[in-house]
Design a protein around this nucleic acid. Structure first.
Length: 938
RNA sequence: GGGCCGUUGGCGCAGUGGUAGCGCGCUCCCUUGACAUGGGAGAGGUCAUAGGUUCAAAUCCUAUACGGCCCACCA
């Protein structure tokens, strides 16, 4: 016996255990057998617990995996986690800060040990949460982006790229995050509109200090590094200034006026200051005009403080320096006695910020590892163009393609400790003068070149282990000075690059590396390329594009055929969930309160392709109620229809039924069941998971429960009907539960266990039972006929409700109207009696009985004698309103049918449809009008 | 500056050419023998605006307005 209400907790833990014991989600390569269906999880970062976005992402994947397993594919869903680079290191640094320690104080080795502990803890939290969410992951395949197997793939890829000349080291302008202390790639910078100021400054001409060139800046602190002022080559206003020397206010540094196409003549004065080392565009201008201007100066350091080059401002944090410089400028007058600071405007502009810590990015020149992307990106463009790779929904294709076409080189190195250390070793003997170290030896910190450190007696091992050295090439590395890809070079004094790789580099290899690549393992051969990747659109470029490029470059195949991009889980008002807004919903809390199945169903049914998901607690009450609904539906079938009798051998099967002798309702529900299955299949094939969920919800609740189950009740005492009803209830319910299983795995598993013997099945799990076989039988006529019955019932119920007939009061009804429709309805009069709670339904032999109300439905009229109950004023109002409605519809039909071009050009079917509709409305209208008239007389 | 998406009842959303739907909320009635996490009946929308195509437009086209996102990046 099932409980009266569905209580998720016990059911969930029961099946979590059972699935685990049976290793239900395990997959083995089955070459030549079942076709693989593979998904690799977007590995969550080991930064903490999972949020609603993860719940959505993994629900969608689990729906797909379970669905395809049900349909007979060898489904494999690979679990894993991502080391998460900067994000994770930041989490640890916060922890350390709370303890009053910095990572530098701890040292690289100990810091990494701490990280490993944290990772272990975090992984188990995450995997536990995924388990709780019901995810059918093949847990034996758990991977981590920084474990040994993945490291192998990373080293292989890096080395290969290096050998192919795609990976190189160079000194370039990069996006530097002062807070995180590392370079970032271009896509890791987020631009935010911020309110700031535009300061207009006058730079005097050196030979004639009373003449000025006015330039504007949003970052006055960079002026200390100015080496030029640029004007447009065709700008006549400044034609005679080009080549002249200016003098930088505050410091007196010399600047040259250069002509460069980049300058927008229409902006401001048309003259722009040039700070080569602190602005990407200025850097480019410098490269084009290097010979024409003084040597660039780096005035802001990697620590965000002004360098020694900043003279009087050295040592100040950049923000402080800005304030001081503005103040100093304000106090400064030119040779003409007018202020140097011409004006200050409020100005809105976009500021690049770090996607991990949200602090302003500092463009700085630094030496980093880069990857050339153009050739690799071309392969990805080709794959999306020729259909080897498809993005769902398709609207993401264009942005994806555009990004690839305009791709720029990828800055691979990060100046953090947590990550895959770059697999490059430098020959210390050769580069001793260019490797700078900062190493503690005998309580003294030795700073200088490696040679100096070795001369001072610091053992080489100490330098290597300390890991705080820096290779400064100042140009190209000499041949033989560096080795790539080897774990530990076999001889010599080798120092590994101190930087780590962008976390996305190992992520990019994920679909390859989880199957043992670069080895051509059995797993790899069977599961790769994977079927589909499901992820949020916010990492389309960061991750999806890069995986495509890696897969295509190394294996010549796409790593996944389809990518499903889902939206972001937001709050009900469309705001992104964030701790600072306090609108975060914790999936665990929700699952505890409403059940996992309800949570999953809510997410799945809200996830229309490509749309963000507005989510609030009340999004889950519907699905929670739905779970309870199917629970009680099953309870009805078991306790009332089957009376908990011992199941017959083979169960109640549909095969034993003679389709020809089925009643209308039977044929109708079987047809609708079949149509629902078709709708689910179609929706799933197009990754419209929400639509599939909707179809099941509507079928089970609005059709099966509200109509078929209600009708079945009257047949349960009929010995002839009982076996038929039982078979249909059991089979339609069991099949529906199977279809629902990918969405609500726990409750369907529990209910299936209770039903399976009656269904003639013995599988221990739904997934092993397989999808319901298509009936291949439908009776479209039954759907139409059932519509007539349903409308009749609805009209009678409406009459009862609107005239306040007590629900318990059994009433009599007489029908009249169109002969053909009456004949059609006659065999199903019992349905109407039952559902409209009539004690009798008879022909109205003598027209409208006195003291009766009237219900019309299509071409049928029902008279309900209600002497003593009826309120005729109320009835008149009701009829008048109904007549008005019908008249309006009738008018619409008339209009169309008197429209010559409609009759001429519309398809015949359409015209016939309108004619039939007109017929119906005419019949309703005359019947209603007649009743109203006779009421008026009485 | 370029691109994409959206604008449908109070709220959140489906619906891609033929009588406007769903969930929540709201009103009224009902402890009817699965379920009150339920049942029944309702109210509520000129489908952002203006043109156009078509026999027929929420649906296709064009423009506009508003909202959101992405990319580029503006000194």
């Amino acid at each position: 016996m099932l409980e009266k209400a569905y209580a998720p907790e016990a059911v969930e833990s029961k099946w979590i255990e059972a699935w685990k014991r049976a290793d239900l989600f395990h997959s083995e390569p089955d070459p030549g057998g079942k076709k693989s269906y593979t998904i690799v999880i977007p590995p969550p970062n080991v930064t903490g617990a999972l949020h609603m976005g993860h719940a959505l992402n993994n629900t969608l994947q689990d729906v797909l995996v379970r669905y395809h397993r049900l349909t007979g594919r060898e489904a494999c869903w690979v679990p894993g986690t991502d080391h998460g680079g900067i994000a994770t290191q930041n989490v640890m640094e916060k922890q350390l800060k709370a303890e009053g320690v910095t990572r530098q104080q701890l040292g690289r080795g100990k810091f990494l040990d701490r990280m490993q502990d944290w990772v272990r803890e975090c992984k188990s939290t995450i995997l536990g949460q995924l388990t709780r969410l019901g995810c059918g992951l093949d847990f034996g395949r758990e991977a981590f982006t920084m474990d040994e197997a993945r490291a192998k793939a990373v080293h292989y890829a890096f080395k290969k790229f290096y050998e192919e000349g795609l990976v190189y080291r160079g000194e370039r302008m990069v996006n530097w995050c002062v807070r995180c202390g590392t370079a970032l790639s271009d896509i890791e910078v987020e631009f935010e509109e911020k309110k700031g100021h535009l300061w207009h400054m006058r730079y005097p001409l050196k030979d004639d200090p009373k003449r000025f060139l006015t330039v504007a800046t949003t970052r006055p602190e960079t002026m200390l590094g100015d080496t030029a002022v640029a004007v447009h080559p065709k700008d006549e206003r400044y034609a005679d200034w080009v080549g002249k020397e200016l003098s930088l206010p505050l410091t007196g540094h010399a600047l040259t006026v250069v002509a460069d196409e980049h300058v927008d003549r229409a902006f401001g004065t048309g003259a722009v200051k040039v700070t080569p080392f602190h602005d990407p565009n200025d850097f480019e201008i410098w490269q084009r005009h290097e010979r024409e201007m003084p040597a660039p100066r780096q005035v802001i350091g990697l620590d965000g403080k002004m360098t020694d080059e900043a003279g009087a401002y050295a040592g100040l944090p950049r923000e402080e320096a800005r304030k001081k410089i503005v103040a100093d400028l304000e106090a400064l007058a030119g040779a003409d006695g007018e202020p140097i600071l011409e004006k200050t405007e409020a100005y809105k502009h976009s500021v690049g910020t770090c996607y991990r810590c949200n602090q302003p990015i500092e463009p700085l020149v630094s030496e980093q590892w880069f990857m050339k992307m153009e050739a690799v990106a071309e392969k990805a463009v080709a794959a999306v163009d020729d259909g080897r790779f498809t993005i769902y929904p398709e609207s993401w294709k264009k942005p994806y393609r555009d990004w690839l076409v305009n791709i720029r080189d990828w800055c691979l190195s990060r100046q953090i400790w947590w990550g895959h250390r770059i697999p490059v070793w430098y020959d210390a003997d050769i580069l001793a003068d260019r490797i700078r170290v900062s190493v503690e030896h005998g309580g003294v910190v030795v700073k200088g070149t490696l040679r100096e450190a070795l001369d001072a007696g610091v053992p080489f091992e100490t330098v290597r282990d300390a890991g705080r050295y820096r290779y400064e090439s100042g140009g190209k590395a000499a041949g033989g000075a560096l080795r790539v890809g080897a774990e530990i070079p076999e001889e010599g004094r080798w120092l590994q690059d101190q930087d780590v790789l962008d976390t996305w580099f190992s992520s990019a290899l994920w679909p390859l590396s989880v199957f043992g690549w670069p080895e051509k393992t059995e797993d790899f051969k069977f599961y790769y390329p994977t079927s589909v990747l499901v992820t949020g659109y916010e990492i389309l470029y960061l991750w999806v594009a890069r995986m495509q490029m890696m897969g295509l470059h190394f294996e010549g195949t796409v790593p996944f055929h389809h990518a499903v991009m889902h939206g972001i889980v937001r709050d009900k008002r469309g705001k992104k969930m964030s701790k600072s807004l306090g609108n975060v919903i914790d999936p665990l809390v929700v699952m505890d309160k409403y059940g996992t199945d309800a949570t999953r169903f809510a997410l799945a049914s809200l996830a229309y392709p490509g749309k963000d998901i507005p989510f609030a607690e009340d999004s889950i009450t519907g699905p929670r109620n739905f779970a309870n609904k199917i629970w009680n539906l099953t309870r009805f079938v078991l306790d009332y229809a089957l009376k908990n009798e011992t199941p017959p051998a083979g169960g109640y099967s549909l095969d034993s039924l003679d389709r020809g002798s089925l009643e209308l309702a039977d044929r109708w529900i079987l047809s609708r069941y079949e149509e629902t299955a078709e709708a689910v299949r179609a929706s799933m094939a197009g990754y419209n998971i929400a639509a599939a969920a909707d179809a099941l919800y509507g079928f089970l609740w609005d059709e099966f429960c509200d109509w078929y189950v209600e009708l079945s009740k009257s047949g349960l005492d009929d010995a002839a009907r009982l076996p038929v009803i039982r078979a249909i209830l059991v089979q339609v319910l069991t099949g529906s539960l199977k279809m629902l299983h990918p969405f609500m795995p726990y409750i369907t598993e529990e209910l299936y266990e209770n039903l399976r013997a009656y269904a003639g099945e013995s599988a221990d799990f739904v997934l092993r039972a397989g999808a319901p076989a298509p009936e291949g039988w439908k009776d479209p006529g039954s759907v139409a006929s059932m519509g007539v019955v349903m409308d009749a019932v609805r009209s009678l119920r409406a009459l009862r409700a609107q005239l306040n007939v007590p629900p318990a009061l059994k009433i009599k009804a007489f029908h009249s109207g169109d002969e053909a429709e009456l004949r059609a309805l006659a065999p199903h009069a019992g349905y109407v009696r039952h559902l409209a709670r009539l004690e009798a339904l008879e022909a109205a032999a003598n027209g409208r009985p006195a003291q009766s109300a009237t219900a019309v439905s299509r071409k049928l009229t029902f008279f309900v004698p209600l002497a003593g109950v009826i309120d005729f004023d109320r009835e008149r109002t009701r009829l008048t309103k109904e007549i008005a409605r019908v008249a309006k519809e009738l008018e619409k039909c008339r209009k169309q049918l008197t429209n010559a071009s409609f009759l001429e050009r519309a398809p015949v079917d359409e015209v016939d449809k309108i004619r039939a509709r007109q017929d119906e409305f005419e019949s309703m209208h005359s019947s209603l009008a007649a009743t109203l008239e006779s009421l008026g007389e009485s």
